[in-house]
Design a protein around this nucleic acid. Structure first.
Lengths: 181, 181
DNA sequence: GACCATACGGAACGCGCGTTCCGCTTGTCA
DNA sequence: TGACAAGCGGAACGCGCGTTCCGTATGGTC
């Protein structure tokens, strides 16, 4: 249950694998062959499996790391920015970042996220909800949507971005739809 | 180049394969194994390949058929309904139909549709554009978006529907974003 | 009813990829 | 510095699936 203290080379290799996975998954999503990740990391396939029980688990690790970053960014805005600007700063930024990252598109878009969604990215969800509620209280965002609706909208925006990269107008339509009517 | 006149059983089997493919692709998308389709159609795998050069081609055939239906529906509304109601009738309907059909979600969402998109579904695209322009001329839809933007929005809506099925509110946000601001 | 091109079924093939295994290497600690 | 556990690489395995092949069946025709 605890950490049996990793050997130095093991620690180094683990970091390499994570970095390689981050890059490879971002570019090609879950579809990237695990051997490619191993080669990119400069290790053998067996080494990857020493550190992660499965390809899926490695993917999870990468995704969770990113979701924590997103949660951090949200937290900063919650702490320091006005409700209105915080919300409308954050949303396009997260959408753009995630759209450039196929791993995040697939992870966020996975219908329901069902199985393991429970704890994964909970902090992201909570902070997203906080940003939303503050914006709603400030009267700048329509009040008939909740956190899950917003998350769904982000998924939609990601699909749009992947379909027509860099199309500002379409994402703008989404944002305009959120404003109080 | 022409039709060498199909034998009766061949014609029957071709129809069965198409029907089975329609059902299977709708449920599971391109991921469904071709053997499953063959079994569902009550034929052998070889028979499927006698009628379609590849699984991908069969998928295409199914998708094109559906796109023609969508184009037909658009045409009817163009011919008989007022610009405003035509547009806002059509969009949710197509979104709902396509969302229930994984094949259509994947086909429409395929980034760019690049390779073969040229002619495939062109009639759908054209009619969609007509509905949009009429609604814009009537002053009921913002004028800063074009047909491709609208198509991208549909892709986004499909992603939303698949993520949170039956969520009326989210699709409503999209539609509201389209109205003149 | 017989002939034969057309069409059929499903076994077999090839390939890609996730995962496992095992003989060898290397960091660690006394 | 020697010994041993921890870690490593990459070959090998198993499986799923798209595609092909070929011996058999059958609809159309005279």
């Amino acid at each position: 249950m605890s950490k049996p203290v990793l050997r130095a080379d093991a620690r180094r290799n683990r970091a390499r694998v994570l970095a390689a996975a981050e890059e490879a998954f971002a570019a090609d999503g879950l579809a990237v062959p695990l051997d490619d990740i191993a080669r990119l990391a400069g290790v053998g396939a067996g080494t990857v499996y020493r550190h992660f029980p499965s390809k899926e688990a490695l993917f999870q690790a990468v995704v969770v790391e990113r979701l924590e970053q997103y949660a951090d960014e949200a937290q900063e805005l919650i702490d320091s920015a006005a409700p209105a600007s915080a919300f409308y700063d954050y949303l396009p930024r997260v959408i753009e970042q995630a759209a450039r990252n196929r791993a995040m598109c697939e992870a966020l878009g996975a219908a329901g996220g069902s199985t393991y969604k429970a704890e994964t990215g909970e902090r992201f969800r909570v902070n997203l909800g906080a940003l939303l509620e503050r914006a709603q209280s400030a009267g700048i965002v329509r009040s008939d949507i909740d956190t899950d609706d917003l998350r769904a909208l982000i998924v939609g925006a990601l699909a749009v971005e992947r379909y027509a990269p860099g199309n500002q107008r379409v994402v703008q339509v989404l944002l305009d739809g959120l404003r109080v009517g």
